[in-house]
Computed example of a mutant assay.
Amino acid sequence: MSEPLRLSKRMAELGLCSRREADEYIAKGWVKVDGVVVDQLGSKVLPEQRITLDRQAHAAQANRVTVLINKPVGYVSGQAEDGYKPASVLVVPENHWIDDPSGIRFAPGHIKGLAPAGRLDIDSVGLLVLTQDGRVAKQLIGENSVVEKEYLVRVEGKLSDSDLRLLNFGLSLDGEKLKPARVHWQNEDQLRFILTEGKKRQIRRMCELVGLKVTGLKRVRIGNIMLGNIPTGQWRYLGPTERF
């Protein structure tokens, strides 16, 4: 027999929304199980039961925005720490990229609840995603995420062919073997890394293990979304038809 699961957890597993959003929708009576409204938090369902969202939940999701920032050095990805400001403070009208192709107009409500979908170290630059949409966060940083992240990494030191192979596969961090990566020379002092995971300071620590020192790190792509020409410190919206 199938074991019952919390409704909010099952909704997140199905990619309908995040668990936090699921609790919000349940409390508002926007969730049906096998056609019946379920509005009690903590309710459980069987895996085979059909879960649907009310049109009001779909409308709420449609109004949530995702922001792409070209993060400069000196900003942290999430909450302020050690006197450094979070990158979210950059999401103000004066920093909105004038060539934003999304067609979305800025509204004050777009700032509320923006959370980073992935880290970018304080001394790293490039593409950082902030989102109000739990579905986007789950896709990018969920336990089973396979979305690629691409980086240009400037390094100092010598790298043998065998150590380059190790960067591609064979290293471990925190007692766990790293997933296969794609690493190759971009030019004489810069490597291109493509990863599908994001351990804390992963690239810098990988480079240390093979005797390299990272002197610059820039994220240029997440999935299908490129950093492109967004100026440093500016941002744009993820467009309605764009997908990671």
Rank of each mutant, 00 (worst) to 15 (best):
V129H: 12
Q132E: 12
L140Y: 10
I141D: 10
G142L: 08
N144K: 13
S145L: 10
S145R: 10
S145I: 11
V146P: 00
V147M: 13
E148H: 12
Y151C: 04
Y151D: 04
V155R: 02
E156D: 12
L159E: 09
S160N: 00
S160I: 00
D161A: 14
S162K: 04
S162Y: 01
D163L: 02
R165I: 12
R165S: 13
L171A: 03
D174R: 06
D174Y: 07
E176W: 06
E176N: 12
K177Q: 14
P180A: 02
P180W: 06
A181C: 06
R182I: 12
V183Q: 04
H184W: 13
W185H: 11
Q186D: 13
N187I: 05
N187C: 08
N187M: 07
R192F: 07
F193Q: 08
L195V: 10
E197M: 05
K199F: 09
C207P: 07
C207I: 04
E208G: 03
L209R: 15
V214R: 11
G216C: 08
K218H: 14
K218Y: 04
K218T: 13
R219F: 02
G223E: 03
I225P: 01
M226V: 08
L227D: 03
G228N: 04
G228W: 00
N229W: 00
P231R: 00
T232F: 04
T232C: 09
P240I: 03
P240C: 06
T241V: 08
E242P: 05
F244V: 10
F244H: 05
